[in-house]
Write a protein that binds this DNA or RNA. Structure first.
Lengths: 119, 119
DNA sequence: AAAATATATGAACGTATGCTCATATATTAA
DNA sequence: TTAATATATGAGCATACGTTCATATATTTT
């Protein structure tokens, strides 16, 4: 017989003490949500290269499109995500919009990531 | 008239010097690929909570299912991804499989992430 | 004012992703 | 040996995501 409890393993949770202990120190749900969204920005090749480029120098949309051999539209869409996540800031000068990193956290996150990847 | 060059902004790349400079220091394509895949593991709420739980204590599939109120199947599928990414290791004792973090890099990545999220 | 340029954005489309469900395998218990 | 338990896995499905395309807006150039 398959009842609801089966799915949640309650009738047989092998280490209730472990589960309880971990549960009590769990960060808030919203923290995980925010963290997942932050890492999502780093989980796409295009966004990753954009962030890396901006960690070198301020660049406009057209520069980024040329650097990555992609359409300005694709770059612009990704920049919108990065803006919404507050990872980049921009400065419009004439008809050109210059993007740069919002703060240095991004650089730190990069460094740690590369450390792990290179091993 | 719309030609191929339009899409790559070559005819008008506003700052060819900047683009060239950044291009020359670009990491290899495979590095970005690996890094994106690493962060992808951290970009999902379920995986993030699994990793966090395992950063506290070694846990079996059933424990994790109970902790996160999810099916063992869902947990098992995610653990497979984490295994393939070499972020977790496991130890089968009897019919129970105990999972734990593969190394301490995961903890470091977590700490940096939370720092940014909390601000 | 009209044309050209840089960027932004909504819709559409194909692909990737995460979960469920059914089922398989391995181990222990009866 | 048979039943029960813990985990793994493939197929299917609904949703999310990233790019293209068409088009809009803002600014500069002619």
């Amino acid at each position: 017989m398959k009842n609801d409890n089966n799915y949640f393993c309650e009738s047989s949770a092998i280490h209730a003490d472990v589960v309880d202990r971990v549960r009590q120190t769990m960060p808030e749900s919203s923290d995980f949500h925010n963290l997942a969204n932050l890492y999502k920005m780093f989980s796409d090749n295009t966004r990753l290269r954009i962030l890396w480029a901006l960690s070198c120098e301020e660049m406009c949309v057209c520069d980024l499109a040329a650097l990555l051999s992609m359409s300005g539209s694709a770059i612009s869409h990704q920049l919108k995500s990065l803006r919404l996540s507050k990872l980049v800031k921009f400065d419009k000068r004439g008809k050109v919009v210059y993007y740069s990193l919002a703060d240095n956290h991004v650089r730190v996150i990069f460094e740690n990531g590369f450390l792990h990847v290179i091993e």
